[in-house]
Computed example of a mutant assay.
Amino acid sequence: MASTFDGVPAGGDGSIAHGGRLAEARRLFPDAPQPFLDLSTGINPVPYPVPPLAPQAWSRLPEPDDLRRLEAAAAAAWGTEAGHVVAAPGTQVLISMLPRVVRLASVAVVGPTYAEHAAAWASAGAGVVAIGSPHEGHPCAGVVLCNPNNPDGRRHAPGDLAAIAEDRARHGGLLVVDEAFADLEDGPLSLIPDLPGEGVVVLRSFGKTYGLAGLRLGFAVAGPRLAAAIREALGPWAVSGPAIEIGRAALSDDAWLAVTRARLTADALRMDDLLAGAGLEVVGGTRLFRLARHRDALALFDRLGRAGIFVRRFADHPNWLRVGLPAGERDWARLEAALR
């Protein structure tokens, strides 16, 4: 399944490849200088400053009111009602769980994209079809896409997606929109402010935008019935006390998000110039990663790896490399030197 979408096998176990696997980097490049500069992910390299946490965040189970306040902060940040928002221990949990909450016989996945979507629906018994556009004719009950897409940054207009959601709902189906990288992009892009009924669920990552992937926090946004079904499937205490406190603070910090968006805008442009100067063609991306094409991309992947810089390669697109953004000037200088 991974080879249909975005995977390079991570090992002999058949698992789907992902960025950030530094054990793999060390295995591939045992003589590389340490520490590795990990540019293989789409995670904000400058994380949100974690506030001091109350001791009770660690020592007590979270109260339901605590979770409701977190979901209310997310709803306010994204322009929807708190009852539509369900917090979870990471978006990946929602991707894996959703096919068991909403049973569909067949699902079309708009790719190439994040391979876990197709794998989750196939694991739940759905027939999975790869399509290149959400407007392609197909008989599937469900449609899954990322907006903006990973890895190429393709975008879909909210109005077009609302029409697809309404069509799926009329036939008892579902549109799944993964907006993991939407927080930092220019709008209008998100479906959340005008959520079209029960025929759609939107997934939002926290860790990518706020640079705290290890916190494991994500959200589903859906109509009241589907939101309630997801919440029931997650069960009590799905989100930790520290994640609730940090998530609520970060989602309420509009000033930090604005400064971060401006910084990442400048860094993405800087990366485009750097890659173009090294002979790569930038073909897409978001404010958190750039996708570039090069005729000898695998040789370049190897050269960067031997220099201790880990970027993302793709089995089905051997001329592609996805490059995340460095955190500071020392890392920028290291990348520039390796690309020379």
Rank of each mutant, 00 (worst) to 15 (best):
H117L: 01
H117K: 00
A118T: 00
A119K: 08
A119G: 08
A122R: 07
A124M: 11
G125C: 06
G125M: 08
A126W: 01
G127H: 14
V129W: 09
I131W: 08
S133Y: 11
S133A: 15
P134C: 05
E136A: 14
G137F: 14
P139Q: 01
P139R: 06
A141S: 13
V143E: 03
L145P: 00
L145T: 03
N147E: 01
P148T: 00
N149S: 14
N149E: 15
N149D: 15
N150Y: 15
D152Q: 09
D152T: 10
G153E: 03
G153C: 04
H156M: 03
A157E: 12
A157Q: 12
P158C: 07
P158Q: 10
G159T: 14
D160N: 09
L161V: 09
L161N: 08
A162C: 12
A163I: 07
I164G: 06
E166R: 11
D167M: 06
D167L: 11
R168D: 08
A169R: 07
H171A: 12
G173V: 14
G173P: 12
L175K: 15
V176Q: 06
D178W: 04
A180M: 15
A180V: 14
F181S: 04
D183A: 13
D186L: 10
G187D: 07
L189C: 10
S190I: 08
S190T: 14
L191F: 03
G197S: 05
G197M: 02
G199I: 14
V201P: 12
V201T: 10
V201G: 05
V202A: 07
L203T: 03
S205H: 08
F206Q: 08
G207W: 09
G211W: 06
G211K: 05
L212I: 13
R216W: 04
F219H: 00
F219E: 05
A222V: 09
P224I: 07
R225A: 14
L226P: 05
A228W: 04
R231N: 11
R231V: 07
R231K: 14
E232P: 01
E232A: 13
E232Y: 02
E232F: 04
A233R: 15
L234E: 02
L234H: 02
W237T: 15
A238F: 11
V239K: 01
